[in-house]
Amino acid sequence: MVSLGLVSDPDFPSYVADSLAESLPRYLTERLEEAEWSIEVVRDPVAAGRSNGKEILDATERQRRLHGWDYAVGVTDLPLRRESRPVLADIGEEHEQVGVISLPALGGFQPHRRARQLLISVLGELTGASGRRDSGLYSQLTELLAPIRRERADSDSIAVRYRATKRRGRLRLLTGMVRSNTPWRLVLGMSGALAAALATSVFGLTSSTVWQIADMLGLWRRSVIVVLAVALMTTWLILTHKLWEHPRYTADREQRMLYNSSTVLTIVAGVGCLYVVLFAANLTGSLFLIDSELLSSSVGGSVGVGNYVGLALAATSMGVAAGALGSGLEDDATVRRAAYGYREAQRRASQQQAREEQEEQEAQTTQAAQASQEERAAQEEQQEQAEPEERSEGDSDTER
């Protein structure tokens, strides 16, 4: 029996690893011609404080030796890149029995299937079985949208590397980074924003003034209001909770753009999920609670489903705008946990801690400089007061 260990980062990578452990043995037996495979999943944040494939391979090798596995593969949501090209997988040169796969490079769609295909190819490299073409990783659609290239790595620690092309692979990498952040959990993780959005929506549904305003708005103005509400909450979350990546923490400009783009798309997707769910609740509530005759008497005309849709859109937009303000009651750590996966949240927390320590040092330096300046000013003042006294004493001696 061949033993395989999957060392996964917590959160999304661990779900993928569990799925692989469940479905992979049958595929491995078919494609790698091995009798039986034993797969164990270990959740360990191997990539939380690391930034490249070599460091992850070293950590994965330590886990392999600790558990006595024949092979080990790290499963991470760290976006690996080499010469501006997304890296899907690295196979060790120094450690010949370990590899690592990067989930974001697989894209945002069908991550479990693509991870299985990639892992079969990686194990084919580790075991010496040439089964990578049979894994399904190289399909016509993949070759058209985001081609995958296998190459010998120019490194002492990495033997083989699977990478995507620069331009098309970058788009897939970005969607994979957003998928790893699981944006639909964003608002559920912020109770203050959700409570403010719900309370304001209820107010909008019960206000006859809101009914009249919603009835007067045309289609294009309703669309603009929806976009503005989502943009307001997105901007508020990013700026208020310092989610924007700064050059001082990420010197690589392209990497910084990827992080910031994934943040914006994650927040937009999360707020969009909030809007859809809140709209469905408001539409159901308005149809159930507001009588058509009462609504007709308020807006001054016959009403139909379109009136209820307009009312639900107005109440939802108000709720999302209020949710932006309510999110200000959440602390930065809560928002990071809601907006990102475990590894990225840890990286952002480290940045926040470094920023706070730097600000504290700058404040201490400023205080020390001010204290020194005040001390010099006090000494100069004492000298100025002492000079007239010395002159008066000198004049007294002269008169004597």
Rank of each mutant, 00 (worst) to 15 (best):
R391G: 00
A339T: 14
G326N: 03
L188F: 15
R150S: 11
S327T: 02
P183H: 08
Y71R: 10
T266L: 11
K166N: 08
S392F: 10
S350T: 09
T76G: 02
V187G: 01
Q63T: 02
S201Y: 07
G306F: 04
V2I: 15
G285M: 09
I101F: 05
A196H: 03
T182W: 07
E357S: 14
R336A: 12
V160L: 09
S23I: 08
E293K: 11
A251K: 08
G326Y: 04
L80K: 03
R400K: 06
Q358G: 07
I290N: 05
D77R: 05
L325M: 13
I267N: 08
D44R: 15
C273R: 03
T175W: 13
G108M: 11
W37R: 04
A105L: 10
A35E: 13
P13D: 07
R391H: 05
S14R: 14
V46S: 04
L239P: 01
E374Y: 03
E389R: 15
V187H: 04
E96Y: 10
L274I: 02
E374R: 15
N260S: 14
R81F: 09
G204M: 05
A333T: 04
G74W: 07
G5K: 10
T316I: 06
S302Q: 13
T127V: 10
R170Q: 11
N307V: 04
I56C: 01
R149E: 15
W69P: 01
A89F: 03
G301A: 08
V16M: 00
N307K: 02
Y138G: 00
R113C: 00
V98P: 02
R185Y: 08
A363D: 09
T366W: 03
Y308D: 04
V42N: 04
L237M: 15
R172K: 13
L106E: 06
S317G: 03
D332I: 10
I56N: 01
R400A: 12
M216W: 13
W236V: 15
A196L: 01
